[in-house]
Nucleic acid binder design. Structure first.
Length: 194
DNA sequence: CTTTTGCCCCATTTACATCA
DNA sequence: ATGATGTAAATGGGGCAAAA
């Protein structure tokens, strides 16, 4: 029901971890004089960059994800491109990089999450087993009590409970299982992650 | 202080390429 | 050949900060 909301929350959490690197030395932006002329990109059909151009851009991106104006101009003239094209390429490349990082982080987190869910299920089944044992022990006590001097009084039973349960006696909350989406019975939970 | 300018991010659109 | 789909190149708007 709120699965989508959960994912959105998770994505934005990841984003907040990846995107802003706050304590980063901010290289202040250089101001550039406008070269006045018309947009050289207008009126010409867009076409894929050549492999050589892409290789050079990738190489440059490997060094740094943001280009200073001078480097951008130099790279553009080296590759026979408009500086605007180089800037756009870097923007799109940063977006792709970020997306990839986000996906990597997401799958990492998901595998951790899966492990936690698995452990939770294991613990829950352990609790169930222990509860069964407790129940059997109580029944056994009752049987023994009846054999000794007839039906056991509720008062006596209460005393025995305390003796057996120790500090947990009477604390039903110990075995409380919250009514959230992960409260799945049997092995149904497995299907959620397949 | 206000405006202008340059850059960035983001969402979206556009132009191709590939495949059934 | 063609429509669906995917991807890279490009656009446009909004925000931020430096320069005018």
């Amino acid at each position: 029901m709120n699965k989508l909301e959960d994912e959105v929350a998770l994505i934005s959490l990841l984003y907040s971890q990846i995107a802003p690197q706050p304590a980063e030395a901010k290289p202040r932006r250089r101001r550039k004089k406008n070269k006045g002329g018309e947009n050289s990109l207008s009126g010409f059909k867009k076409r894929k960059l050549s492999q050589e151009q892409v290789d050079a851009l990738e190489l440059s991106f490997g060094n740094e994800h943001k280009l200073e104006s001078e480097k951008k101009d130099r790279l553009a003239s080296q590759l026979g491109l408009d500086p605007r094209q180089v800037a756009v390429w870097f923007q799109n490349r940063r977006a792709r990089w970020k997306n990839k990082k986000l996906q990597e982080e997401f799958s990492k987190l998901r595998s951790v999450h899966d492990g936690v869910v698995l452990e939770k299920c294991r613990l829950e089944s352990e609790v169930m087993k222990l509860k069964e044992k407790l129940c059997e022990a109580e029944n056994e006590i009752q049987r023994l009590g009846e054999r000794v001097d007839g039906p056991i009084s509720s008062l006596t039973m209460e005393a025995m409970d305390t003796a057996f349960l120790g500090e947990f006696g009477g604390y039903e909350d110990v075995f409380y299982i919250p009514e959230n989406g992960y409260n799945i019975h049997g092995m149904e939970w497995v299907n959620l992650f397949m």
